[in-house]
Every structure is written in C-alpha cells, then in structure tokens.
Design a binder for these strands. Sequence first.
DNA 1: TGTTTACTTCATTTTGAATTGAACAACCCG
DNA 2: CGGGTTGTTCAATTCAAAATGAAGTAAACA
Lengths: 181, 181
Amino acid sequence: MARTTSTAEQPVTTGLVVAGDRPSDVVAFENQMVDFFVAAATLLGVPKSVAAIYGIVFASPTPLSFGDIEQRLNLSKGSVSQGLRVLREVGALKEVSGESDRTALFEPDLQMRKLVQRFIEQRLEKQLTAGRGRLEALDRSVPGSASEAAIVKHRLKSLADWNNKARALLPVVRTILKLGA
Amino acid sequence: MARTTSTAEQPVTTGLVVAGDRPSDVVAFENQMVDFFVAAATLLGVPKSVAAIYGIVFASPTPLSFGDIEQRLNLSKGSVSQGLRVLREVGALKEVSGESDRTALFEPDLQMRKLVQRFIEQRLEKQLTAGRGRLEALDRSVPGSASEAAIVKHRLKSLADWNNKARALLPVVRTILKLGA
DNA sequence: TGTTTACTTCATTTTGAATTGAACAACCCG
DNA sequence: CGGGTTGTTCAATTCAAAATGAAGTAAACA
C-alpha cells in the first residue's frame, strides 16, 4: 500500500520488500529485518543490496532460492547474482542443496565468527600494520631544519602511539568475541 | 621508481599536494602525509578533502592559514571552509590566534583522546544500543507458525549475542586507549 | 563611507560506486 | 538437437555523496 488516503504517511521502514500476495505481517517483519541489516551494513560500507539479500534470507524460516530473493526484494537479476556471490564468498550465506532440487537454496550461516574474524584481519589488522610501516617511512623523511623536524617528528610519534594502542587491542577483541559460542 | 624509461612515471602518491615553488622534498613529504590520512579516513568514511586538510596541517611545523591550505591542496574555498569547520568541530584542529593576526592559523590538536572517544560513543555505542532495541522489537513480531517462529527467533538470539559481545567490548577499548597518555 | 580581504553558504556540478539490463553461458528435459 | 529455465557477466545507467564556484556576509582599514 504505502501512501494511502491523501496525506502520505511516513513509511516506518525503507520499504525494500515487495509485498506480492504474502501476508502483511510477514512483509512487515521482512522489511524490518532487511532494514536492520541495511543499517548495520551502511556503517561498514557494504552495499545496500547485499545487506538486503542477507536480511531477506535471514527473515525466512525456510531456505530461499535465487528467484524467491529476486521477487521479494525489488532487485535485478544482476544484483541478486552479485550479492549472492559476495555473501557466499564471505561465508554469510550457505547453499543448502535442496535434496534433488535443481535450483540452489540459501540460508544464513550463523557461525559468524569466521565473518567477524575475517573483518578484523582484513580491514583492521592489515590497515594498522600498513599504517605503522608508513609512519616509520615518514619519520625518516621529515624535511626542514632540525627544530622544524623535531616538531613534526613529535607528532608522528603521537600517531605511532595510537597505532600501537589499536594494535594492542586486537588480541583482546579476538578473545572476547570467542567467548561463549 | 615504477615504470622507468621514457613514458610518464606513475606517481607514488595520489598527488593531492600542489608543488608551487616549494622544495620537492617538502612537497613529497606533504603528499605522503596527506595520503596517510586519506587512507585512514576512507576506512572510517570521512571525505577525502577533510582528511587532506588535516594531513597538510599535520605535515607543517608551523600553523597554516586558510589561504595556505587552499593553495597547497588543490581545493576550492568552499571545500576548505567546510573541511575546516568539521575538523574544528570534532577537535582535530585547533585555531591558534596568531597574536594580533587577523587571519586564523590552524595546527593539529594532538590530544586525540577526545576524538577517539567521540567516535566510539557516537558511531559505535549508539549504533549498538539502537540495534539491541530493534532486535528486541523484531523478536516480538516474528510471524509464522510456532515452529517457523522458533527458527527465526533462534537466529535473532544469535544476533543478540553478538550485539552483547560487542557492547561488552566497549569498556575494555576505552580502558586500553586511556593508558599512557 | 567605500573598498578590499577573508571567509561562509548553498545551489549546481562532478565523480565514483551501486544497480540495472541485455547479451551470454550452462544445464535440463522433450 | 531445440526450446526453456536458471544464473552470470559486464557495459551502460542511475544515484548519492563530495566538490565546486558564485553570491553573500563580516570585519579591517583607508
């Protein structure tokens, strides 16, 4: 429905889910689920379509096929294909071969530890280590007179300290996230 | 040197800094400094121009004026103005009133604790707490038969666990970052 | 007061990433 | 085989965030 009567009601969700003929409580739930992941993904720089796909699969008690996803979200085949590839690659979705089905079915992989670890290692650890290297190189190439150089070197030292703190944090993060499941 | 011989040498940096008539070692250093911050900022979703401004100020042993920044980076007045506003607002730069100067001069504020704290509170804590609320709401509105609902509720539980872990981490992060200056 | 310099604001433009869609494979079944 | 279904690839398009630049404000100074 959306926009009944005259004065346009603000949609509660972003309305990414297509109703079709399914019950409105189901659609409402799907929409909220999708929005939840879209919000989280935006924070991490993941495309909306990818998050939406994960959300719609997550919201369904039964595995969904390519076609199901294409229909329920308002997405092109291309986007669904690419989105599913990404989600499989990172291990967010798994393919459950529907016995003798010809079409693949997908459900969320709840063992997100892999996912989180991957994120920490690739995005954070890599960046921090690279940063350290670059800071060392910068420190060696500070131009200017001795007194000028001292000022800038002091600043670089301060950056290096932060880099160290952040790197010291990673093992702690890993440990905590490992606890209980 | 990459790809020597005759044709166009690949720039090592993104070359955001304008040389003008300043010494090439200074310009090279500035470029690397700017690139460093641009890389870090990209990770956090901060616009390149803002990062570049911070970088060029950081690289200078003496405070820089609006005009200095505009010239050294290839940026419009508008971008410099907006970038400086953001950086002052978050406390990344401070204005050092050059005695009886009429133009404001800027230097980096090295007390980044504020900055980091702000980031943690605004971006992470807020998001995590909001997420928790939304998860609770979702759990109350799972549609479908009892057995279907059970499956989805189990998934929601798993998400809630992760949310809790992440929230448990915040105090730890705060503590570690506080250590030693 | 009028002019210049220093900066801000915001409507328009640019840019780069996300999305589409049409052409292309791969498989299945008659 | 041939026609249908299922999915992939990638050039073209769309869209939103970022950058620009022109018009506007404010203070300085003559």
